[in-house]
Design a protein around this nucleic acid. Structure first.
Lengths: 132, 132
DNA sequence: GTCCATGCAAACGATTTGCATGCGT
DNA sequence: ACGCATGCAAATCGTTTGCATGGAC
């Protein structure tokens, strides 16, 4: 379990209770959309402004502490930044699961010089939903 | 080269000059954002409304004639729907190249029952930009 | 004490909607 | 002739900005 304060300490960002709460909610949920995040944080800080949430997710992205994913048919979601991985999205329950990215296709496209980053989304039905 | 009228004939959508033009522009550019599409179609139909362009891309997506891609750091772009493929995005010139998706990683994640769709974006610098 | 963060309201941009008219079938 | 498509304007939604106050360092 990563230490959330340390993430902020190693950045230029100040440690505020709002930021700590935002990060702990993201960690708890794994992947969360902005409106769910806002809803969750309001149960802790009822007076927090949506603008503050937006400013913080932008600052945290710039500081490379969180990352944004864009699954098809879903609102963008945020996650704590970690090593490269892919996402499996269940079409039924909409859950997002991380998985290790290994030997992704090496496309033989002569325009490609070299590949620096990979972004992979797989879509299907998870076992939990299939089993019902 | 696919026949654009046929795409519309096989759908419930009416064949209008605006739709044909939208589709031919998408085909010509391969991948195009909505504002570029609007700009291009205005050079043919100067009176077309942006609302019409939006209504049409929504209708064409629902009819499975076009698809939307979401490369990181770029506006969403549209392409004609075709068999499954990945996208390589040049970080310098922002160009999008299609490539054939073959033996993508089989993640050993026990929550996955089976995979129905794959969405892959690779990011790097294309040879054209590297060579300069 | 300084500077950044917060919270509110207003502004903004992108997309959608309602409605009257036009066009494809 | 009917019903969907178009084009305009207005409405809406998500996100950003400006600014005064508060809090972290």
């Amino acid at each position: 379990m990563q230490d959330i304060s340390a993430l902020l300490q190693n950045s230029a960002l100040k440690i505020t209770p709002q930021r700590l709460t935002i990060l702990s909610i993201i960690r708890k949920y794994g992947h969360i959309a902005i409106d769910e995040l806002y809803e969750q944080i309001r149960s802790v800080y009822p007076t927090i402004s949506l603008a503050t949430v937006y400013k913080n997710i932008n600052a945290l992205q710039d500081a490379n502490i969180i990352a944004q994913i864009h699954p098809q048919m879903q609102k963008p979601k945020f996650e704590l930044k970690k090593q490269q991985h892919g996402h499996f999205i269940c079409k039924v329950c909409q859950s997002v699961y991380d998985f290790k990215l290994q030997n992704i296709c090496s496309p033989n496209l002569d325009i490609i010089d070299d590949i620096e980053e990979k972004e992979v989304y797989l879509y299907g039905v998870c076992k939990k939903c299939k089993g019902e």
